[in-house]
């Protein structure tokens, strides 16, 4: 499912709202989530999961083309931990 397919499904479900409002709301939700991580904060959605930042230590990398070594600084990367309900529901088909 892509973002536009998600918007279509939400338009069907939220049929008392205009398609335009549902589209804006979906985009706002994603933007707010991105801004939160950008600001260094966590996202906690019960039953879905939490997003946090994980630190990657500085390291010496290599340019794969030239083999030259490059000093890479430490950085933060987004990390997602699925919540209980999501873990269980995804697993039902195997249980």
């Amino acid at each position: 499912m892509t973002k536009s397919e998600l918007i279509e499904k939400l338009i069907d479900k939220m049929d008392h709202l205009s398609a335009k409002d549902v589209e804006s709301a979906t985009k706002e939700i994603l933007e707010m989530m991105a801004e939160t991580l950008e600001g260094g904060d966590r996202i906690e959605i019960r039953g879905f999961g939490s997003f946090s930042l994980h630190y990657r230590a500085p390291r010496v990398g290599r340019n794969p083309k030239t083999g030259e070594s490059v000093d890479l600084t430490g950085k933060y990367v987004p990390h997602f931990k699925p919540g209980k309900e999501l873990r269980e529901r995804v697993n039902l088909s195997l249980a």
């Binding site: 499912m1 892509t2 998600l6 939400l10 979906t26 939700i29 879905f48």
Partner: peptide
């Protein structure tokens, strides 16, 4: 919003949210 993503994953389908 979160329910649609869960439902899709539950069905075994990947969810691709461009930009995110």
């Amino acid at each position: 919003f979160f329910e649609e993503i869960r439902t899709c994953l539950e069905k075994g389908e990947q969810v691709k949210l461009s930009g995110f």
